[in-house]
Design a protein around this nucleic acid. Structure first.
Length: 489
RNA sequence: GCGGAAGUAGCUCACCUGGUAGAGCGACAGCUUCCCAAGCUGUAGGUAGCGGGUUCGAGUCCCGUCUUCCGCUCCA
């Protein structure tokens, strides 16, 4: 475990040292759980994003993309359940330092009372609690806890802090008019991208002439005010999701759930990652909207963690929006039901959601790529740090070096770059010994290095050096673009 | 939010029990170099997280504060 922890620290350091990820606003001491992607991190992130987008939209003719706004009508979050279900009042015991959700604490007390035969008391307490929670009357809730001498299981005392509310969603002011009631101007920064898809379900279905089953994909930022946000970019307050909501005929959700569960794992494995590092985690306790749910977990240096979720959401979201907006969210299905010989008709489609964290995927790719190699020989100790990215995700695809920076070699190298740079990202370097330049590129995960030497002037060949094997080959200059393009396809 | 540890050059660290900061690596400029880091020369870079206190004098002692890391708590 100690080694894994060190490895995680090493990855974080490497990310900062080589321009992948910086702590946000670092010159002002940073901002907790917010990170910036640097010059190479933004390239890698973009490549991951593009790979997902292409695999969803371009390779599935029944999936289209949208880009909904981060701001949404506040009612959206009432409909989705985020306003009511995720504002949990908390209370701390001052002696044990243990924190409880107020409702859990009181419900636990009620259970105890039932167990000892005080059924009436339990019911009274619970009904009072519900009434007070509905009014957000925290002072009275605390009094309720104290009056019943509810104790902390750890310390056994009733020495409680005031009740505080933990807000999942960030809110901000909308518009410039001042209202007597703050709530009128309040909008939230979306805590998930999914709702932008649901509220546009009929827009896309009608204008795109989409037929069930079909999907809508979206990539975008989301914001959550996590209680503790740590573990580098694994849990951030501002993060990016890649989601796809797949709309299906009710009754077929089971098979589609299974389909996407398998399909999404295949996507991960298509990047060449070790299947042994992946596993499914099927949810036993389901969220309020879910019928079936699982996570795809990856073995990060900090252990197996969720990177993607596949959820069978039923018609929960669309039904909620229909209820709150009073706008029908029906789809009319003309296909003939073989059981009745008639069209399936009107229904609210069921939804299978696939939701992957882009930042988590970045960390996955980085964790998988980061390798420390011992290259020591009998003569001298040697080592290197190399990022073994899949070539298609690497920030830089090709580096070109003149072996020495004279005799016309730099010019040849520059020509190679100008020939290739419209096709993929290239990097030119003429400083320092050739070996050092190779190692610098290893640290950035560049899969191919080209070295121009004096022979190149004679026969138009160069050396290509492969990142992972460190092997070299002599190839013709006019083959370079072809080789790299094939590798990143 | 609680407990523990730590904050000195881009990175890793040193300065022992107080006397106004050093090294290695890295970076940059140049030299050398015909294929895998640590060959030569030179240059830049720190008001020692921040604020206050004690002291003739503080990176070094005390207090506060911020940040980070580890553990706990929460997690759709």
């Amino acid at each position: 475990m100690a080694n894994d922890s060190n490895r995680f620290q090493a990855i974080i350091s490497h990310c900062k040292e080589y321009g992948f990820i910086f702590p946000s606003s670092e010159i002002y001491d940073g901002l907790q759980a917010v990170y910036d992607y640097g010059q190479w991190g933004s390239e890698l992130k973009k490549n991951i994003r593009d790979y997902w987008w292409k695999s969803m939209t371009q390779l599935n003719d029944n999936i289209v993309g949208i880009d909904a706004a981060i701001f949404m009508h506040p009612t959206t979050w009432k409909a989705s359940g985020h306003v009511d279900n995720f504002n949990d009042p908390m209370i701390d015991n001052k002696d044990s330092k243990k924190r409880y959700r107020v409702d859990h604490l009181i419900e636990g007390f009620a259970d105890e009372q039932v167990a000892v035969g005080n059924k009436q008391l339990a019911e009274d307490v619970l009904s009072q609690m519900d009434a007070l929670l509905a009014k957000d009357d925290f002072a009275s809730l605390k009094k309720l806890i104290e009056d019943n001498k509810i104790k902390c299981a750890i310390s056994g005392t009733s020495n409680w802090t005031d009740i505080r509310q933990f807000n999942l969603m960030f809110s901000t002011e909308f518009g410039s008019t001042v209202s007597a009631d703050d709530e009128d101007n309040k909008v939230y920064l979306r805590p998930e991208t999914a709702q932008g898809i649901f509220v546009n379900f009929l827009n896309v279905q009608k204008t795109g002439r989409m037929k069930v089953p079909f999907g809508i994909a979206q990539i975008g930022k989301a914001f959550r005010n996590e209680i503790v946000a740590r573990q580098f970019i694994f849990r951030m307050r501002e993060f990016e999701q890649m989601e796809m909501q797949f709309f299906v005929r009710p009754g077929t959700e089971g098979e589609w759930y299974k389909y996407w569960k398998e399909e999404r794992l295949k996507w991960h494995l298509s990047l060449g990652f070790d299947p042994a590092k992946y596993r499914y985690h099927d949810h036993v306790k389901l969220a309020h909207y879910a019928k079936e749910a699982c996570d795809i977990e990856f073995e990060f240096p900090i252990g197996f963690k969720e990177v993607e979720g596949i959820h069978s959401r039923g018609d929960f979201d669309l039904s909620q929006h229909e209820k709150f907006s009073k706008k029908k969210q029906n789809y009319f299905d003309n296909d003939i039901d073989p059981a009745t010989g008639k069209a399936y008709g009107n229904y609210i489609p069921y939804v299978i959601e696939t939701s992957i964290g882009l930042d988590r995927m970045f960390l996955l790719v980085m964790s998988n790529a980061y390798t420390e190699e011992d290259l020591s020989t009998a003569e001298k100790p040697d080592s290197r740090v190399v990022l073994k990215f899949p070539a298609k995700l690497a920030p830089i695809k090709l580096a070109v070096f003149p072996l020495v920076k004279k005799d016309g070699l730099p010019e040849i190298a520059r020509n190679i770059i100008s020939d290739c740079k419209s096709s993929f990202r290239c990097f030119y370097e003429e400083k320092d010994a050739i070996g050092k330049r190779y190692r610098r590129m290893d640290a950035l995960g560049t899969p191919f290095c080209i070295t121009v030497d004096h022979q190149s002037k004679e026969d138009n060949t160069v050396t290509i050096r492969y990142r992972d094997s460190m092997q070299q080959e002599r190839i013709a200059i006019d083959k370079i673009k072809e080789i790299v393009t094939a590798a990143i396809a």
